[in-house]
Design a binder for these strands. Structure first.
Lengths: 332, 332
DNA sequence: CTGAAAGCGCTTACAG
DNA sequence: CTGAAAGCGCTTACAG
């Protein structure tokens, strides 16, 4: 309605008060008479006044932007994860008047993030991926920019949010053990990832807790596509009852290989996964797996960042819960 | 090195010149002595001065941000497309000093974009998806915000970039015809999508150009998962020689169904696709398909938007080229 | 070629 | 409770 560019000065003039007063009425900061505040608020509402966030930011030295760093080089299967987390971040960001500035960057290429920080375009950063040696983290720590990692990191003094992989994996493994499985083949990805270590830990914990001996010859780690195919045959020959995959990429690879070998699931081989992305969502039979809430993870990451911006407490690590999804892929 | 927050005033004071002069040296606008400019530039370089983009923006009424609107509700197979386009956008955006403000939104839910526009946080917008009735487009036109669509739209006065689907589909179809295929089954998605129409057009054009009659009973449109499975059986019973899929989702569905039916590709049935995402990239045999450069699409979309921001010409529509990838899935 | 001054649209001590 | 004034860090007519 009407001119979209009415400023605080216009409002002040129209109401015969000072800009200071208008500003206070809007922000709620500073003493102001109740009647005056109402009058200003009413006028603002009626004339559809929109504060200029940029100007506000300049005066307060804030931008109301948070930077989300997402991978350029990604594995296809991870994309839905990143996307869901971003949706979660946006949800709590926008509730708090913040927007997302996107920074797509390759492993440890910090140029783009550095430019954004140098230009002071964001108040804080969320990293969607981390590495053992992580130049993004080092840059942020050096520049003392508040940040949160979605996923775990071993860097000290870092606020991080992650799924509770190790507990989840332990619980799923315990479920299988309680169902009577003993020869459970574990198929894992690169051991250099922090998340792989967490999952492995959960696996071990379950056996320890159940007082059952692991079968070392059934543990296959650092599997790529080809190695996974070969491992399926090996697992079969070693009489595995169940193949437990660390992620869905591996799992769909395993399912494909079993189909090719005409080994039926679950009659001849049971299958379960430590993860549950949409890649597997329409599988027949439905796969016993773990379900994490990635959107929630994004929301929590954002919430922790906003907390830091509001005056940080000590850095903290938050682990999110999960659900076990028991499907018919492990029926016997 | 040293204090990171040196301002234009500091530089001016240190050099005994005015802020005006410093500003001119940096921007290159306005008359300034060569010696003075060099002196300023040298000082700036040495002391690692970084202009405050926000302040600059406030003075010039620009933000150096472009908003990228991406879907919240997506089909898994489309995610890599969006991601690649964004990477392309970022590339040319950052070359020109712009950053990406992300807006994830559901079909025709304009609330989030509206907030961003009301807050004047961006100079222009790129839409990664469009609808026949598109409230985002209508909002942008109403507010007179420069924007570009990645993908075609029928809205008038709209700058758009798209892959040249119809030409590409025509050419691929012609290739199949020239290889002697006559009974080509077409498997298509929802006819309400603009892109589906373009592809259909290409299919028709090819037959017309080759002066060969189409086989209407082999054209299957509006296929969902289940319908696609059924259509495979129908196509076989109607003695199709080749199944031509409009997208990779359909194609991987078709391949799965053929495998299930123990129909070998290409010996018993040839397969081709009007698209080529990473979903099919490791398929055996390799699928004859079309290859588009999505990153380039993003770069062009961004370039066109920046052109508009620099003082728009007339709206234009840009069609990007493609490549035919002939794989062994259509060998006979 | 260079500078003083006003302005972009807000906020915030400091006075009253 | 309210306001005049300075300030955030830049740009840009307008003079000289």
């Amino acid at each position: 309605m009407g001119n979209e560019n009415i400023t605080i000065a216009d409002v002040a003039a129209a109401l015969g008060v000072s800009k200071t007063t208008v500003s206070r009425a809007i922000s709620g900061k500073g003493r102001i008479g109740d009647a005056t505040r109402q009058r200003v608020l009413a006028y603002i509402e009626e004339h559809n006044y929109r504060p200029n966030v940029i100007a506000k930011g300049l005066a307060q030295s804030v931008t109301f932007n948070i930077c989300v760093v997402m991978p350029d080089d990604y594995v296809l299967v991870d994309l839905p994860f990143f996307h869901e987390v971003i949706v979660g971040i946006q949800e709590t960001a926008s509730e708090n008047g913040y927007d997302i500035l996107l920074c797509v960057s390759r492993e440890n290429e910090t140029g783009h993030l550095r430019r954004i920080l140098d230009n002071r375009k964001v108040d804080g950063v969320i990293l969607l991926r981390t590495f053992l040696k992580d130049l993004h983290i080092e840059l942020l720590q050096e520049k003392k920019i508040p940040f949160v990692t979605a996923g775990s990191t071993l860097y000290r003094n870092t606020t991080q949010v992650d799924n509770d992989h190790s507990s989840a994996c332990a619980e799923l493994t315990l479920l299988l053990l309680s169902r009577g499985f003993r020869r459970i083949a574990l198929f894992g990805g690169a051991e250099s990832f922090v998340v792989t270590q967490s999952r492995l830990l959960g696996y071990h914990e379950a056996f320890a807790q159940a007082l059952i001996d692991e079968v070392p010859e059934l543990i296959f780690m650092n599997l790529d596509r080809e190695a996974a195919d070969a491992a399926v045959e090996t697992a079969i020959s070693r009489q595995a009852e169940c193949i437990l995959c660390m992620d869905d990429m591996l799992c769909s690879q395993v399912l494909g290989k079993l189909r090719m070998l005409q080994v039926s699931v679950p009659e001849e081989m049971c299958v379960a996964s430590y993860y549950n992305s949409s890649v597997l969502s329409h599988n027949v039979p439905d796969i016993t797996s773990l379900s994490f809430n990635e959107r929630e993870l994004g929301k929590e990451a954002c919430r922790l960042l906003l907390e830091q911006l509001a005056g940080a407490d000590a850095p903290k690590k938050l682990l999110l819960s999960y659900q076990i999804v028991e499907g018919s892929s492990t029926c016997r």
